[in-house]
Nucleic acid binder design. Sequence first.
DNA 1: AGAGGATCGTTTGAGATCAAACTATTTCGC
DNA 2: GCGAAATAGTTTGATCTCAAACGATCCTCT
Lengths: 162, 162
Amino acid sequence: MAGKRRLVRRNRNGGAAPANIDLGPLAGWVGFNLRMAQEAAFQAFSRRSQEIGESPGRFATLMLIGRNPGISQTELSLANGRDKSSLTPVVEDLVRRGLVERKRMDEDRRAYRLNLTPAGERTLASMVRCARGHERVLDGLIGARDRKRFIDVLKRIAAGIE
Amino acid sequence: MAGKRRLVRRNRNGGAAPANIDLGPLAGWVGFNLRMAQEAAFQAFSRRSQEIGESPGRFATLMLIGRNPGISQTELSLANGRDKSSLTPVVEDLVRRGLVERKRMDEDRRAYRLNLTPAGERTLASMVRCARGHERVLDGLIGARDRKRFIDVLKRIAAGIE
DNA sequence: AGAGGATCGTTTGAGATCAAACTATTTCGC
DNA sequence: GCGAAATAGTTTGATCTCAAACGATCCTCT
């Protein structure tokens, strides 16, 4: 048979394991498969967002600011699932590039209000197009029938772990 | 109403977004939910493996060596979904702690063969107990009915992305 | 009003990871 | 055989992340 010795190896190692490796119990564990799927999806999205010259991490940040004008950095970090200290250089970069505007709150002068600038809105729009392409690929892998249930399970895991 | 202003905030930010934040399209996207679920699960596993004094990253590494005696570092990095250069300090640490044994291959003296020592076997066994506890929690969130299908979808994503 | 504690954002230090350059060996082509 | 290309593992430099410590500001309680 022609393809017998071919490894499954992908371009970069953003894919599955080589064919002849025994994963043992890992193969049946949710944690391991969750990690492998997430990292493969992230790599793909990373390549895709490179095409529009953006870092994948900026993505949710811009979306959350756009959807929640005046949000503070702490709220943003919670919604985004990152530590607030990780956000400092990100916001700095977005402000520097003129995509986000930052103002001290009047009623609490420790905190900032974040808003998109018009340029930020435009960048977000192009990111959304990019992400939709990515989602179409994922949808194709998941299948329309399983999609809703799959996302529900992911939400349960994200919300349910203490 | 009593609970109106209460945030959903978890202990650390390993949980869901605050209640009153609009996620916009993110809420329905696979990529975002996959990331949030993976990171929540990883945090939980991280805390759990801290209890037995091990780093969560060592886990799959030891399992793969145990299941595939004599595996090389490159094969291991592929199976584990990490760059081979990330593996260098990990293997170094495992060897130093006497959990893994490393020998040059006779037939290819660039490569190493990795094997577990008896101490490595014991450590792996205790890690497996730890991981089973974690998996039970995840199973409870996923539900027995969806479990198999969920893992299949994850595998499709990990394998299917170019 | 004032003291003590909480909270916002930043800084700092540590760790994990990747990608590219490097060394040493091996394999391939002639 | 021998030189060129490929491969195994390491080193180096960059990025991202968290956690703890910190200054500034706010809130609570008296």
